[in-house]
Write a protein that binds this DNA or RNA. Structure first.
Length: 669
RNA sequence: GCCUGGGUAGCUCAGUCGGUAGAGCAGCGCACUCGUAAUGCGCAGGUCAGGAGUUCGAAUCUCCUCCCAGGCUCCA
């Protein structure tokens, strides 16, 4: 039919429009509200500008600003405005790439004379960005040949490199299929700014505005530390001021939960400068949490058939030559010490070689397999100075490390029961929202044959897939000796953390020439599984602190109950309760009446985040009761029989009950 | 390791133009004895991260080192 086109909408219905109608015309024909929220369109699966003409028969959906896809368009367009603002302020600057990332965007620049941005510059740049938005510049798409593109950007070396990559076919091309010669596209903003871009973009800069520049950072061109370091500006943008404010509030919430801050406030651990970067000491309260975590882990490992071993912190270089660590992991190790006339010793970066030597201490029979050797093994890794971070990235850490030696036939079943064990143990700590990540062969730094890697990877994948869990692939992320499954957990505010790792290893048994005698009376080589469930105790504690915002479940709290006598003459009763609590194994103390009750309540409940605060006064002394303040509840329960309180408490601790997330959230404020 | 920003009392921070350092909280002492989110008064607390330099004089200006934060790279 001449003069009209018919397009199909996502709900299956179709719409007739005059020929030449654009995606924006379509949105307007559907509703004013939709047209107002529209930022781009999806045409036959491809994201396009709203100004795109719709061909007859197309399947079209409108991308709105409040969808994740729409926000990405807003952020990408904001990145262009950022680049334009920087070029206004620093004429002659080179601009590199400005992609959308989770919750925001960035743009990388090289400033004239190697200058760098300061925090104050962000304010100036934001002001210019607002001017550009007020100018309501349209984003206009153009298509060019490679040659035209190279000419257009001849003073922009990073753009030239990208266009050349497109020309060489190593960069993805997404130009208009109806213009076969035009293989690079640009977006033009009046009057002077053009950027290389696939699009789509919002129709004009006035559609933007709810944004904030977050920080500056150095970043290597193309992520390669041997290439020039550029200046990166991070920003974020949303569809409304409200959504932006909510995002900033989430960031503040994460800051309130930061384990480094809570660790100091709750007196759990510190990093004395005198010791060195990335080396923590645990204070009595932090030490108590650690002990509780370790005790529970020990108990579970005994139940799961593990045997407990111990190994030293240093060893001769030869051990790590044999294991391959000095060949593949030397950068991550502390430099050697020379002892005994030139003999080199290293601090251990991993426990596996030691456990292998335990296996090798005598001849082994198939009857001993699977052999599961467990150790809280403290290892030292030379992390580069810029990467240490609280307890999550340190130079000395203790792993809940075990190595399982088994036959090939036992491998799949062993991995399967291991995964069950891991998920259950993490669940006991209140982490129960998981997904799995499968890391495969790291190209260029892996030992062993392709076939072994393939078999190991396939086995891990089969075990992982048998779970009703989401699984993502981490191509090339394995260790040098084998592929791994890692368990990723989502915490109370939706962040994900790498927790447990399970690694399959055919290599080390070979390098160490490990053997066992099979039922057939011939020598066989065992398979080795490396696994750490907490990962490191330090990191796991950090994640728990952040997950619970410092308000740990009662069973893990360094102090579970504090008794507050209203006046000094209630102190005898308070100390009597304390004795009974301690006799029952409860971690408790008394805070005497030298300060007003309100101050003591505030300190115990709101600063130290204790699960229970008992207030005892005249009524309680008379009736053997207590006033119970439960963490997360706004008002106390008066007149509870002490015996009932203690009984409930002991049940809660025995069950390892976890504080509700709602309670933990309230405590964070 | 690299980029940017930092380091002042146990903690959070102020400190003007280069003129020898201040607050709140915490700590200690005394008083107060109180039923639910900070009782009052007093005292003590500092090699201004460390070192070198410029200067009559440096928390302040310059350089080096250490440590921290946010990134990059890397990773449990």
């Amino acid at each position: 039919m001449p003069g009209v086109v018919v397009v199909q909408l996502p709900d299956g219905s179709s719409k007739e429009l005059p020929r030449g109608a654009t995606a924006l015309d379509l949105a307007e024909s559907i509703g004013r509200r939709l047209a107002k929220d529209a930022v781009a369109a999806r045409l036959d699966g491809r994201e396009v500008d709203l100004s795109t003409e719709l061909p007859d028969g197309a399947v079209v959906s409108i991308v709105t600003s409040s969808s994740e896809e729409g926000r990405a368009v807003l952020r990408h367009s904001s990145a262009h405005v950022l680049a334009q603002a920087v070029l206004r302020l620093w004429p002659g600057a080179h601009y590199a790439i400005g992609p959308v990332i989770e919750n925001g965007f960035y743009y990388d620049f090289e400033l004239p004379g190697g200058a760098s941005f300061s925090d104050d510059d962000l304010v100036r740049i934001e002001a210019v960005m607002r001017e550009i938005m007020a100018e309501d510049q349209p984003f206009i798409r153009h298509e060019h040949t490679i040659e035209e593109g190279l000419e257009l950007f001849d003073d922009q070396p990073f753009k030239v490199e990208i266009i050349e990559a497109v020309g060489a076919g190593s960069e993805e091309v997404d130009a208009d299929p109806n213009a076969p010669d035009a293989v690079v596209s640009t977006y033009w903003n009046a009057p002077t700014f053009t950027d290389l871009c696939r699009g789509p973009h919002v129709p004009a800069t006035s559609r933007l505005g709810h944004f904030k520049l977050m920080r500056v950072a150095g970043a290597y061109w193309r992520g390669d530390e041997h290439r020039p370091q550029l200046q990166r500006i991070y920003g974020t943008a949303f569809e409304s001021e409200k959504a932006l404010a909510e995002h900033l509030e989430r960031l503040e919430e994460a800051e309130r939960r930061d384990h480094r801050k809570l660790g100091a406030e709750l007196d759990l651990f510190s990093f004395p400068e005198e010791i060195g970067s990335g080396l923590a000491v645990f204070h009595p309260k932090g030490g108590t949490i650690r002990r509780l975590m370790e005790d529970y882990s020990r108990q579970r490992h005994v139940e799961a058939g593990y045997e407990f071993v111990n190994s030293p912190h240093i060893s001769k270089a030869q051990l790590f030559e044999t294991s391959g660590h000095l060949g593949w992991f030397a950068d991550g190790m502390f430099p050697p010490m020379e002892l005994d006339g030139g003999q080199q010793y290293y601090l251990k970066p991993m426990n596996c070689p030691f456990h292998i030597l335990i296996f090798k201490a005598r001849q082994r029979s198939y009857r001993e397999l699977p052999m599961r050797l467990f150790e809280f093994g403290t290892v030292y890794r030379y992390e580069k100075s810029g990467v240490v971070h609280g307890l999550t990235r340190v130079r000395g850490m203790t792993q809940d490390d075990a190595h399982i030696f088994c036959s090939r036939e036992q491998m799949a079943a062993e991995l399967d029961s291991l995964l069950t064990f891991v998920l259950d143990l993490l669940g006991q700590f209140g982490l129960d929202d998981f997904y799995l990540e499968l890391s495969t062969r790291p190209p260029g730094k892996a030992v062993g044959s392709e076939e072994d890697w393939e078999e190991a990877t396939a086995t891990l994948e089969a075990v992982a897939r048998s779970r009703d869990l989401e699984m993502v692939l981490d191509e090339g992320g394995g260790a040098f000796y084998g592929p791994k499954i890692s368990v990723q957990a989502r915490d109370a505010i939706g962040r994900t953390h790498q927790m447990s790792t399970i690694q399959l290893d055919f290599q080390e048994p070979q390098r160490f020439e490990m053997e066992y005698i099979g039922a057939d009376n011939v020598r066989h080589r065992p398979i080795m599984i490396h696994r750490a469930l907490f990962g490191s105790i330090e990191r796991f504690m950090a994640i728990l602190i952040e997950h619970y915002a410092g308000a740990l479940p009662t069973w893990l709290s360094p102090e579970q109950v504090r008794v507050l006598p209203v006046r000094d003459d209630h102190a005898d009763y308070a100390y009597k309760l304390l004795d009974e609590l301690k006799a029952a194994g409860v971690r408790a103390s008394v805070d005497s009446a030298s300060e007003p009750l309100g101050a003591r309540i505030r300190r115990a409940r709101h600063l130290e985040k204790l699960p229970y605060v008992l207030v005892v006064g005249d009524d309680d002394v008379a009736a053997a009761t207590v006033g119970v303040n439960r963490r997360g509840e706004s008002s106390p329960e008066r007149g509870v029989a002490f015996a009932d309180f203690l009984e409930d408490l002991l049940v809660e601790v025995a069950e390892r009950a976890t504080t509700t997330l709602a309670g933990a959230r309230d405590q964070a404020r």
